[in-house]
Design a protein around this nucleic acid. Structure first.
Length: 477
RNA sequence: GUCCCGUUCGUCUAGCCAGGCCUAGGACACUGGGUUUUCAUCCCAGCGACAGGGGUUCGAAUCCCCUACGGGACGCCA
């Protein structure tokens, strides 16, 4: 694929194909920030027709947990982000676990050693910067530290333009236990895996000068960088960037709450990026087509769960009822409202009525309970209000009498509606509004819900008459 | 403390690079109305921002400088 927006130059044979990577470390749950970073990498790869690599940065033996790996895979797949190279897929630049790339790192370490760019101190191997050395008391480290006047490096960032920054201290590339550190393996892998664009969070921007130093030391081309604005936590949760401990920070949570992955993905794409034309709800093809690194926002963003919920609702509303039912079935089963093999026809008739009224799948059980069970809650407040006026018991008796006239075969919207109209006219009323609310309450336990007459139709004659009768019998007078 | 990045409605953003079309547009949220019962639906309306100061210019949200504020990094974490 070569979209016009990608530019003619990048389409020439021989030009390097775009290769991006998402490189999580399995040290915690998969949170919003990681998902957004993964998504932007994935979008850019798909936009350019390039390759999306998944690489697992598991060099920290202490904190890595295998169960977190599954969460990463699971969350990425849920959001529809497939990787072209990486775990469970393979590829020409493996292995894709840093813990399995020891030999490669050793080779690169040797290069640095031969070039005289390393030295041992306290058992750890340091990378030596080039420049004049001096010693200074460091306010942050609270100690005398050796510093280096290294030449500033220029970082070419697709979002921020040129960023100039100088490193001032040598840094560890190999721990005393022999294991290589993040800065080192990150650069080596990006070189080895021929990564052309590094798209990551802005928290890495200050690290980037270290990385550029390493690329230079290896004589390797520096990738194009794009540092994404951070996602800040809700002020209620404190200050700073959102972390996995914050409310609503975990992708898993939205999965459990039955959000549609396409909606979550759409919202995430809009956090820090916009297509510039006021469009928000877009299918993935449109997002891929319009996605450009240069259109990414510079300033940090705040995660707005309400807006995501709204997008989710929009997605939900326009699903064909068959698809909606496919999503709804497990939710209702989980809530114990329907059996695994529940009748599809009745389910779809119920959902056709409720789909446009319910804001989220997780609220479907409470909204539809009375369609599936006789054990549904009664809204006491609404009940008290209803009973205050009119003659509820009498109204119910009238409704029961009127509806009883209809046979099972006649139990359809039109006939039911006509029965109510006749009832109203018999009492000199133009509309049957005196009978509707109390009947609605009798059959559903609430004064709100889907359209009234169709609701009765779907509930069925037997249920409706029984419930009206039962409520009637409970009333005094 | 040092260095780096940022700053348009409460929130996400358009406009900024190529200054006038901006009495700053959209969306979420909120408020108020309406939708032949109800409603978590739908429609309409309202509320509401260029961080502050200086400069350049006929003209600045847009260019430059300073200040303030916010964020990040400074680990033998990634």
């Amino acid at each position: 694929m070569c979209l016009p927006a990608a530019g003619v130059a990048s389409c020439f044979a021989g030009m390097t194909e775009t290769r991006v990577r998402f490189a999580p470390s399995p040290t915690g749950f998969f949170h919003i920030g990681s998902a957004r970073t993964a998504l932007f990498n994935w979008l850019y790869a798909r936009h350019t027709g390039g390759t999306f690599v998944l690489r697992i940065e598991d060099t920290d033996q202490e904190r890595n947990r295998p169960e977190f790996l599954q969460i990463i895979y699971n969350s990425m797949r849920w959001l529809g982000m497939d990787w072209d190279e990486g775990p469970e897929i393979g590829g020409d630049y493996g292995p894709y676990f840093q813990s399995e790339r020891g030999e490669i790192y050793q080779r690169y370490l040797d290069k640095l050693k031969e070039a005289g760019r390393t030295y041992l101190k306290d058992g750890a191997l340091y990378f030596r910067l080039e420049g004049e050395r001096y010693t200074e008391y460091d306010e942050y480290l609270k100690a005398e530290v050796e510093k280096v006047k290294a030449a500033p490096v220029e970082i070419d960032d697709a979002i921020r333009g040129k960023v100039v920054r100088a490193e001032s201290r040598d840094f560890v590339i190999c721990r005393a236990d022999g294991s290589p550190t993040f800065h080192f393996v990150n650069v080596v892998d990006d070189i080895e895996m021929k990564i052309t664009h590094v798209v990551r969070g802005e928290d890495h921007l200050s690290n980037t000068s270290k990385h550029v130093e390493l690329f230079h030391a290896f004589g390797a081309p520096v990738p194009q960088y794009a540092h994404l604005p951070l996602i800040l936590k809700d002020p209620q949760d404190g200050k700073g960037k959102m972390s996995k401990r914050d409310r609503g920070a975990l992708i898993e949570e939205y999965q459990e709450r039955h959000f549609l992955p396409a909606a979550v993905r759409n919202y995430l794409a809009l956090l820090g990026w916009s297509p510039k034309d006021d469009r928000e709800k877009m299918d993935i093809g449109e997002i891929i087509e319009k996605f450009e690194l240069k259109d990414i926002q510079k300033g940090a963003a705040r995660f707005d769960e309400k807006k995501m919920a709204h997008l989710n609702q929009e997605y939900l509303k326009e699903l064909p009822v068959e698809t909606y039912a496919w999503h709804a079935r497990p939710v209702l089963t989980e809530a114990g409202l329907i059996a695994e093999d529940a009748d599809e026809d009745y389910l779809q008739r119920v959902l056709a009525l409720c789909q446009e009224k319910v804001d989220a799948l997780q609220n479907l059980p409470s909204f539809t309970r009375y369609f599936f069970s006789e054990d549904y809650p009664k809204d006491e407040k609404a009940k008290a209000k209803l009973l205050k006026k009119g003659a509820p018991k009498q109204r119910l008796a009238e409704v029961h009498a009127a509806l009883s006239q209809l046979s099972d075969e006649q139990w359809e919207d039109e006939a039911i509606n006509q029965a109510f109209m006749d009832l109203a006219q018999a009492h000199g009323q133009e509309k049957p509004f005196q009978w509707w609310p109390i009947t609605r309450f009798a059959v559903s336990g609430t004064t709100s819900g889907p359209d009234f007459v169709p609701m009765l139709t779907v509930l069925g004659r037997e249920r409706v008459l029984a419930r009206v009768q039962r409520f009637h019998d409970q009333l005094e007078g």
